[in-house]
């Protein structure tokens, strides 16, 4: 009798294992509000960024495409750049039991940028030579970097989602620059000499779904 009761309890504790469904259920398409805010609020930055992701269970294939141009007044001259970039990577959702499928994620990206830049400044010498006006440029520079990302995605209403992404950008590299100018600001990355460098996006998305995914909340 006792052995029968123990056996019955063991059967109750057995978890029902379901096969993970990796089929995507939809995609989110969004944009970075900070880039848009900077574009419309000042003259030093013009840019946009489109963000998208597709779910494969708790894994999300994430793609960002963007453009930025800066026009900076330097202490002794001017710097401007313009270019396009993309990032591609994977986010892993750690809120797997949330019924709304809100996300807290960690992930990585690989980024690529194509840009041009120009620099004009006044060079001075402490002795002998008069002040000299220098103009130089890089016509077609390409570059790459890696990123570790983290952030949130929260469902606001129907297909409307909002969230942020924090980026730790690493290992920038460039090629195609002239010997007369060191690349300074790489669209998508930022200041090339800074490694690591930070990035932050505050994003709004719309989700286009084509099938329901039922998430069973964990009972406490």
């Amino acid at each position: 009798m006792l052995s029968f009761v123990i056996g019955a309890q063991g059967q109750q504790k057995k978890k029902v294992k379901t096969k993970t469904d990796y089929r995507p259920s939809g995609f989110r398409l969004g944009t970075d509000l900070i880039d848009l805010g900077k574009t419309f609020s000042g003259n030093t930055f013009k840019g946009w960024e489109v963000n998208g992701d597709v779910d494969f269970s708790r894994y999300y294939l994430a793609v960002d495409v963007g453009s930025w141009g800066k026009n900076l007044a330097l202490n002794n001259g001017n710097y401007s750049n313009n270019g396009n970039y993309y990032r591609i990577g994977i986010d892993v959702n750690f809120l797997t039991n949330d019924p709304d499928r809100n996300m807290f994620f960690l992930g990585f990206r690989v980024g690529h940028s194509q840009f041009s830049e120009s620099l004009s400044y006044s060079a001075t010498s402490p002795n002998l030579f008069a002040k000299s006006s220098i103009q130089t440029s890089n016509g077609n520079v390409s570059g790459g970097w890696g990123e570790v990302t983290t952030g949130l995605r929260v469902k606001i209403w129907k297909g409307l989602w909002m969230g942020y992404t924090g980026r730790l950008k690493l290992a920038p590299s460039t090629k195609g620059s002239n010997a007369t100018m060191a690349p300074y600001d790489m669209p998508g990355y930022g200041i090339v000499q800074k490694n690591p460098w930070w990035g932050f996006n505050y994003q709004v998305f719309w989700r286009f779904g084509w099938r329901e995914v039922v998430v069973i909340p964990v009972k406490k």
Binding site: L72, A73, L74, N75, N76, G77, Y79, L119, Y121, A123, I134, T136, A179, T180, M181, A182, Y184, D185
Partner: peptide, 20 residues
């Protein structure tokens, strides 16, 4: 020599580095 222009920061400005 090669004169390479390098931006340090907007506040510091740009400077020439002499190489090769």
């Amino acid at each position: 020599y090669v004169r390479q222009g390098k931006v340090i920061s907007p506040a510091c400005g740009a400077f020439t580095y002499y190489q090769n």
